[in-house]
């Protein structure tokens, strides 16, 4: 019953977010601030993780190529496919659920606990529009960092493959460009846009409607991470079924 109430509450929140918009002059500043905190602030960790994920995928693929009949360029091919189809959009989104999601929940939750949200409402400000809308717009920039994560991941694969002595640079590049299907990138970016929306709104819901004190802010952040991850994984399955089959 609680889950149904939460789903209903989440839907109502989404509708409210788009009502009674804040002045553009103020909203513009809020969006830029959120882009800085949510997107630019996540760039470093995503580049770091993507590089090493690409490297590991490359090494593991190389270690499994035990037959001489399988061409070495398969390492580049497998790295590209894994990074573009799954690791960059989905794995990075799970990381973002932890980093950005818990930040959103705790910052909005703290505003709730310290009556700052009540202060906005008393003034006649649509607190949901003021707090959540800029986050949604900022997260629409998320596909840009995922594109960078894709490049860095494949570069990490090349680096580990070539400098680990598993493959030559030419073979890796040949594998990366082999049988390339442009729709796979489109599919990946469609997923990323959907995940971006979920990453901005689910943690906001958990922060905005939380009750209690500082301890509950911590609990809400954990719950938010768990639910954002679960919804991302389920959505990933549904979108893959719809778009790739």
């Amino acid at each position: 019953m609680k889950y149904l109430a939460d789903i209903g509450g989440y839907g109502i929140m989404i509708v409210e977010v788009f009502k009674k918009p804040t002045k553009w002059r103020i909203m513009k500043t809020l969006i830029l601030k959120e882009i800085d905190e949510l997107i630019y602030g996540s760039l470093g960790i995503l580049i770091f993780i993507s590089f090493f994920i690409g490297a590991v995928v490359s090494i593991q693929t190389a270690m499994n190529l035990t037959s001489d009949f399988i061409p070495k360029n398969l390492i580049g091919f497998a790295t590209r496919q894994s990074i573009i189809l799954e690791f960059a959009p989905t794995f990075c989104s799970i990381i973002m659920a932890g980093k950005v999601g818990s930040f959103i929940t705790s910052s909005i939750g703290t505003m709730r606990v310290t009556e700052q949200i009540d202060a906005l409402e008393v003034m006649g400000v649509n607190a949901l529009n003021y707090l959540v809308f800029p986050k949604i717009i900022a997260m629409m920039m998320y596909p840009f960092i995922i594109a960078i994560a894709m490049y860095v991941g494949i570069f990490g694969g090349w680096f580990a493959g070539v400098f680990g002595g598993f493959i030559t640079s030419a073979d890796f590049v040949e594998g990366v460009t082999m049988d390339f299907i442009p729709f796979h990138v489109t599919y990946s970016f469609i997923k990323t846009f959907v995940f971006a929306f979920l990453l901005a709104t689910i943690p906001s819901y958990h922060g905005f409607y939380m009750k209690g004190g500082a301890l509950e802010v911590g609990k809400a952040s954990t719950t938010s991470f768990v639910w954002t991850s679960i919804i991302i994984v389920i959505t990933n399955y549904v979108l893959t079924q719809l778009l790739l089959t």
Partner: peptide, 19 residues
């Protein structure tokens, strides 16, 4: 109602200043 609310000022127990 929104216009009337703009005629109201509120001082919260914890001040509720924007951090």
């Amino acid at each position: 109602q929104r216009n009337l609310r703009q005629d109201m000022g509120m001082v919260f127990q914890g001040s509720a200043l924007f951090d």
